[in-house]
């Protein structure tokens, strides 16, 4: 839960103040590199925080101003509807941040094998 909240808040702030999308990969990677405890847990930390952040943000944009553009982009990407586009946004965040989190944990495991880490 700590990890989820940390990642969510850090990503939200960094994304708000800078235009870079890849914070959703870098933040969970750094977190799990330092604090990751399991493969699944690390994947989840990234996937959940980024997924929630992008899903909520996309839904917010969509419900306030972005319906027309979402319609057009959905047509351009041939994904059917703007709902699919929200799902695509969510799915990309989940995958990108999830794998970044998992990789962070695996790196930690490789660089500092569990015993050393405990010590």
């Amino acid at each position: 839960m700590m990890g989820f909240l940390f990642c969510l808040i850090a990503m939200a702030l960094l994304q708000w103040f800078t235009p870079y999308w890849w914070w959703i990969m870098l933040v969970p990677l750094i977190w799990t590199l330092m604090q990751g405890t399991s493969f699944r847990g690390s994947f989840f930390v990234g996937a959940a925080s980024a997924g929630v952040l992008w899903l909520v943000a996309a839904l917010w944009q969509w419900s306030t101003t972005a319906q027309i553009v979402a319609d057009r982009v959905a047509h351009m990407l041939a994904v059917g509807s703007d709902i699919s586009l929200i799902l695509l946004t969510f799915a990309f965040a989940v995958l990108a941040a999830g794998f970044a989190g998992a990789t962070g944990y695996l790196l930690r495991n490789a660089l500092f094998p569990p015993k050393a880490a405990e010590a």
Binding site: Q15, W16, P19, Y20, W21, W22, I24, W54, A57, A58, W60, Q61, W62, T64, T65, A66, Q67, I68, V69, A70, V73, L85, L88, T89, F92, A96
Partner: peptide, 16 residues
């Protein structure tokens, strides 16, 4: 990623 990023991608190009 850049494109669907709700903070700076196409989601920002709404009517406002």
């Amino acid at each position: 990623g850049k494109f669907v990023n709700p903070f700076a991608g196409f989601w920002q190009n709404g009517k406002a």
